[in-house]
Structures are given as C-alpha cells and as structure tokens.
Design a protein around this nucleic acid. Structure first.
Lengths: 140, 140
DNA sequence: ATGACACACGTTATAGCATAACGCAATTGA
DNA sequence: TCAATTGCGTTATGCTATAACGTGTGTCAT
C-alpha cells in the first residue's frame, strides 16, 4: 500500500509553475512556462525543470512524451479506482488542432498491458499512452 | 483498404540508416546514427532525419517518444492481423537496464482505446504506447 | 528534345528541449 | 553546534530537431 501522492505544501516556485499549468487549457513546454514566469523572477530553465520534477513526483503534473510538454493532472470525472488515490496508468488524447488534452484511464487497458508484462516477466515502472488526433469540436 | 506500407526501394541514405538501426539491439538517437554513418559520408543531422522520416512513413522504423530515439520495426511473431499488413497500434516495452525494446501489439488494447475515442468523437491519428521498466533477463 | 515538376540530397545556421556543475541559504534533527 | 538535506540561483553546455538555401537527377507530357 504505497502512497504515491501526498503533495506536502508546495514551495513558491512549485506553486507558480503549477498555477501556470492549471490555468492553461493546453500543455506547455518548460520554456513556455519559463516565459510566463519571468515577471515572477524566473530567469533560467532549471528553475522550471526543478519545480516540474517535484510536481511530477507528487503526481500533480503529467509529462506528455510525444509533445515534450506538461499538463496539470486532471482525472476528469470519478476517482473510481480506490487505491488510496493513485490511479493506474493515465492515458491522454491530444487534439492536434486545438491542443486540448483529454485525460482518462481505463482499467481494461491497464489490465491487458499488465498481463502482457506478467507473461513476459517484464516489470513495468511507468507506462505512457498518448493518442494524437482531432477532437470532436475540431472535427465538427 | 489503405496500403500503409509499400517500401519502394530505399535510397542510399535510407538504406544506410535502416541498416544501422537493424543491426542495433537497442534504440538509437538520430545523432548516434549520424555518428555511425560519418564514415559513409554523413555530415549533418538532416541527412539522418530525412531518411528517418521516410522510413517512418514506410512503417519500417518506429519512433520511441519517451526516448527520442528510433528502432527498426520488428513485429516479433505473427502478423496475425490481416489488413494488407499494416498492424494496428504497436506497443513497446523498453528495458531501462539493458535498453532492449520489445515490440508487440494487442487487439484488445487497440479496441478499447478505439472505443474510448468513438465515445468521445475523437479521431485518432497515431497512438503511442510505451512501457518503461525492467525486462526479465535484467530482473533475474 | 525540352521544359515543368517532384524528389532526394548537401550545407549552414538556428531553434527548442534538458541537464551538469558550482555555490549559497534555510531547515532540521542528532 | 554541526552535519545533512533541500530548495534556490546562475552559468555553461549538451542533445534533439528543423528552417532555408541551393544542387542534381529522374519522369513525363508536350
């Protein structure tokens, strides 16, 4: 029974980065975040990356590998899966038109990939699922 | 009935890049490929990226988003899924210890993600599934 | 043939993403 | 009090990817 999330009071930089990400309706690169925070005293990429590292560790932010960008965590509806709170693998659908990201998770997929791993003796540490495409609004 | 793959005789550069990737037992970054091909006249990253773009288009190479690296395609056993030959979404298990990549695909996962997309009216273009972890050999 | 076009290629320069290595300051707890 | 830990700021550097330019070569309709 591990406790994957516990967000122990963020530091100033962590809060600033998290706020910027939360307000954004699309993923942001570290350098975009940096630019947004220059008014607040940020000068160097490392200030952003260090904050992001912690936020990722706390589970408050996700990294989108196919975009080299970051989003605030938003398990959309439900926290169906009990487990203290840490959901399983999170999947993302990324609209290449409007940039919006839909976060979801799916037990069946988790389970299926878990089965594959078990069958191969592979020990998963982190799983990335990202669907690039066009969202319903943009397709209309 | 689209024909996703047709590999129309590779050019010299494309062959060189593909050969290097095929011989490697681990994914390679574009710059690593470049270094391997300096003896063959490669001087600049674009020579590699242009070849890779084509090989990706032909379906002969995959990009690993979580690694910013590339592997030669190797649908391991079976081409179970008919469809001319183009398999559905390919998934990867990447050993963080030895670097080896296991390529597989799973109809159930495909189907499940497809259902999610259908339910949301999201039109998928490309799906990335990558499991980072430790392979059975390394865990032993 | 010839001109228009598409495509691969080569080169230089630049943009975008990420981390190494240093030192300082504040906090905590033995 | 002292050592250990953690966050912070700064400079420099490295890795990943593309823009923009020009060249050569093949195809093919005219």
């Amino acid at each position: 029974m591990n406790a994957p999330v516990s967000s122990p009071a963020l530091t100033k930089n962590q809060s600033l980065v998290f706020d910027v990400l939360t307000r954004s309706d699309a993923p942001m690169s570290a350098y975009t975040i940096l630019d947004k925070l220059r008014d607040h005293g940020f000068r160097a990429p490392l200030q952003v990356y260090r904050a992001l590292d912690k936020l990722l560790e706390f589970g408050m932010v996700h990294r989108l590998e196919s975009l080299n960008a970051f989003v605030a965590c938003a398990h959309p509806e439900s926290d169906c899966c009990a487990k203290g709170h840490g959901h399983g693998t999170v999947a993302f659908a990324i609209c290449e038109s409007c940039g919006h990201v839909f976060e979801f998770h799916d037990h069946a997929v988790d389970h299926r990939l878990g089965d594959w791993a078990k069958g191969k003796g592979f020990k998963p540490a982190k799983t990335t699922i990202e669907i690039r495409g066009i969202c319903s609004s943009c397709a209309a």
